[in-house]
Amino acid sequence: MADLLRVENLCKSYPAGGPPWDRRRVMALDGISLSVQRGKTLGLVGESGSGKSTLGRCVLGLTEASGGQVIFDGTPVQGLTGRALSDFRRRVQPVFQDPFGSLDPRWPVGRSVREALDCFRIGTAATRDGQVLDLFNRVGLDPALACRFPSALSGGQRQRVAIAAALASEPELIIADEPVSALDMSVQAQILNLFMDLQADLGVASLFITHDLGVVNHVSDDIAVLSRGKLVELGQTDQVMRHPSHAYTRSLLAANPTLVKGEPHAHRTD
C-alpha cells in the first residue's frame, strides 16, 4: 500500500544558550524516518521533551525543519506555496491537546468550524452554515451549541468542536497531538470512540501523538517510540507492545501502570 505520509531523516535543532561564537544547538529531532499509510493510524509515543509534538508541527508545516524531508502523497512539502500549499493544508489537519487553547475564546464555536470552509472556499457562502451543522452532527454535538462560546462548553464538547473543525476540509490525514490527555477518563473513552468511528467511516489516516501507552495500544496500527529526538523503535503495535526491542521501550512499558494490583504488567518481558 502506498505511503500517504513519509518522513525522511527529519531533523530539527534549536539554538541553546552559549556565547554567539559558540552557540550550542539542541537536537529536538534527530534523523527521524517513518511513514503513515492511507487510512491507518501511526501512534507516536514519547515522554515530555522527546520531540513528538515538534514532529507533528513539522509535518503540519507550522515549524520549519532544519533537515530532511516531509513527503505527502508523493510530493515534498517544504517549499510548497500558493495553491499547492493551500491544497496540502486542506488535506492534513491538526487536533490539539488543550481543548481550552485550540478554540479562539472570542469566537462562537460554529465560526471556528466554519473558518476552514471559508478559507478553503468549500461550498458556497449559503451552504456553509448547513455544512457546519452537518459537521456538528457528525461529531455527536447538538448543532444548537454552534452559537455558544468555548467557555460555555465542557472539555469533551470543545474537543468535539476541534475535531469537527479539523474534519471540515475532508482531510486525508489528521495529526492528533495528545487529543485526549486533558480529558477525564469517561470523556476520553467517548472521544477515542469518535476517532475510531471517523476513521472507519471516512478512511482518514492519522498520526496519533501521545504519552499514554494504553491509548496508543488501543487505537494504533503501528507504533513509533521517540526518545530525546531519536526514533528508538518502530513496528506493528502488537510487536512493539509484546516484544519491545529497545531498552527504552521496555522501561516505558514497565513504568506504565496497569489496573491489576500486585501483578506484573501483562506486556512486560523479563
Partner: peptide, 26 residues
C-alpha cells in the same frame, strides 16, 4: 503560541487573516 492560532493556519487562513481575526483581538 496558542493552538487556535496554529489551528487557524492549518485551516488555510492567511497570515493577514490570522493576525486580524485571531491574534490582534486576543
Amino acid at each position: 503560541g496558542l493552538d487556535y492560532v496554529a489551528g487557524s493556519r492549518a485551516r488555510g487562513a492567511s497570515h493577514l487573516r490570522v493576525l486580524v481575526s485571531h491574534v490582534a483581538p486576543n
